[in-house]
Each structure stands twice: as C-alpha cells, then as structure tokens.
C-alpha cells in the first residue's frame, strides 16, 4: 500500500502551480505545449501515455486557479468517448470537446466539438445552435444546444459509466483545490487580523470552525484521490468511490468557503476578494451533474440492496455479553 504521489507527479504539481500563478488565463495551445492536454492519451496518439492520477494533480491545481477553459469538458468529461484521431487532435492542442451529459453543457463557449448521448451511443453533434446562459460561476460557462442531429458515432453508451466516474472525480479534485485555497486565505487572515487586542485566530470561535474546515478538506482529498486511483486503474469501486468523492468534496468545498467568508468578516463578503469566486465555483461543482442527494441514494442502494451477499459475514448484528 502506497498512498503518496511519485516524484514525477509532485513535479507536475509544482509546475502547474507556478505556471498558473504566472499565467492566470492560459490558452489551450499553452496547455498543449505543457503536455497537459495529452497526459493520459496513448503515446501512439501523441499523448504522454500517463494515467488519470497525473491528470488528478492537474484538476486539483486547475480548480485552485479557477481556470476558465475547456480542460474539464475535454479531458474530464468527453475523452473516454473519443476515437483515436480525436484524441490525437486533443493531445496536439488542435481541438477541444464538450459533452451534453445533461441539459446544461459546460464550456460551450470554448469547446470546438460537442458530443451528445443518443440511444445506445455517443455521437458528435452535427448542426444545431449553441445558446450560452448566464452562470453564477463565471469561470465555468454553461449553455444549451438546440436542434442538430447525431453525426459521427463515437462510442457505445457503455462508456457512460466511465464518463460518470471520471467526471465526478475530476470535479471532486477541483473542489479540493478550491477548498484548500479558501482555507489558506482564512488561515492567513485569522493569523494577522487583530480585534479586541488579539489575533482573531486565538479565539476558538474562529479557530475551531477552521479546524473543522481543514478536516473536511483532508477527508475530501482522501476520497478524491481514492476515486482517482480507482478511475486510473479501472477498479471495481470506481463508480461508488467517485459518487462518494463528488458528493462529499462538492458539499465540503461549499462549506469550507462559507467558513472562510465568515472568518474574513466584511472583506470576505466583497466582490474584490477572490473568495466570492472560489465560493461560486464550489457551488457550481456541487450542482453540476448528479446531485449529492441522488449520489447518496445510489450509495445507499448499493450498500443496502446490492451488497447483501458480500457483507453477509457481518450480518446480522451479533452481540456477546461482556463477562
């Protein structure tokens, strides 16, 4: 058992943080130049042939940076449905994709191609109109597609389970990046702001909610990295791990941002402070796709109805009296 990142993954994180700090609004071509668009794409298709674990590092950092662009839509959402030539075009930085998994389609303003789910398969949308909608989170534009028809067939609909697990995990990772930065802002403020003659972080009414926020961030990361490993290795538990990670990390990022806003007082409530943007991304992640309530209903069903046979060894409740 080894739950640490490799030196290569650590180096990738460092590179990503430095690059995104210096380049807050990177173009797709810049991401391709760094090799980020082809991380998990096979070498014969021009990618790096690495895994979702390396992409996991990037999703966390892109979340932290509130990156605006079609990386999630292309790599986190659509990639498993795409054919070899499409993947090659992504790795080289020529093209981008999004997928209409639900009525609201992410990054519809920037993605070049749109994939749709129809009947037994996933197709490239031909024709149709794109309508961009106002979204609370300005860093992740949403829109709807109207009309058009299924064109090129891309994949069988059996790939949807992988798409769900991958996209939920990617969002959970983004949520972790968002929550970390919000927590860092709150810690920095509580460590310097003075009221009643003391730094406010001294007061347990301030510090204990921050300890709880830290707890949520770490638990979220543990779930998101577990899910990422499951996705990367095509583990049997990928679906349930992704559902757990998305529901918990999404909700937690919102809660952590709320604690941070409260910790900063009036400043945290202003338009100028980046907390409002982190908060809106967290809200956007939480509401994207399948809701936390629905994901937990799926988890409960899998625990209570489906796993009966496998957990039989511990049921029914057995009690032995002490002494």
């Amino acid at each position: 058992m080894d739950f640490t990142f490799t030196p290569v993954q650590e180096a990738l994180r460092e590179q990503a943080r430095e690059f995104l700090a210096a380049t807050p609004e990177p173009t797709w071509a810049q991401l391709a130049e760094l090799g980020w668009t082809g991380v998990s794409i096979a070498e014969e298709d021009g990618g790096a042939g690495l895994s979702f674990l390396e992409e996991a590092v990037l999703f966390e950092e892109l979340g932290r940076a509130l990156y605006r662009g079609p990386y999630f839509a292309t790599i986190g959402l659509t990639l498993p449905a795409l054919l070899s030539e499409d993947r090659a075009a992504i790795a080289s930085g020529e093209t981008t994709w999004t997928l209409a998994l639900g009525p609201l389609v992410p990054d519809l303003d920037s993605a070049e191609h749109v994939a749709i789910v129809g009947g037994d398969g996933i197709y490239e949308l031909e024709g149709g109109e794109r309508e961009l909608l106002a979204a609370t989170d300005e860093s992740r534009p949403l829109g709807v597609v109207r009309g058009g028809e299924p064109g090129r067939r891309l994949a069988d609909s059996t790939v949807l389970a992988e798409i769900e697990a991958r996209s939920q995990t990617a969002l959970a990772l983004e949520a972790c990046g968002v929550a970390w930065l919000a927590l860092e802002d709150a810690i920095e403020y509580a460590s310097s702001r003075v009221q009643f003659g003391k730094k406010i972080g001294v007061y347990q009414a301030v510090s204990h909610p921050l300890a709880d926020a830290y707890t949520r961030v770490e638990l979220s990361r543990s779930l998101a990295l577990w899910a990422a490993w499951c996705v990367a290795t095509d583990d049997d538990q990928a679906s349930i791990a992704a559902a757990a990670a998305k529901s918990y990390a999404g909700e937690s990022a919102v809660a952590v941002c709320e604690t941070a806003i409260q910790s900063l007082g009036g400043i945290g409530f202003t338009w100028e402070h980046r907390l409002q943007r982190l908060y809106k991304r967290a809200l956007g992640i939480e509401s994207f796709g399948t809701s936390g309530t629905r994901l937990r209903a799926e988890i409960a069903a899998s625990l209570i109805e489906q796993d009966e046979a496998s957990s039989g060894s511990l049921a029914p409740v057995k009690v032995t009296q002490g002494g």
Partner: peptide, 14 residues
C-alpha cells in the same frame, strides 16, 4: 481541535 488549529494550521496559540 486546538491541536489541529495550532500545530497543523499554524494559528496563534490560544
């Protein structure tokens, strides 16, 4: 929670 706040997060000691 004090331990997390002070030793992990580095908040000022209470």
């Amino acid at each position: 929670r004090n331990i997390v706040a002070e030793r992990v997060l580095g908040l000022p000691y209470s």
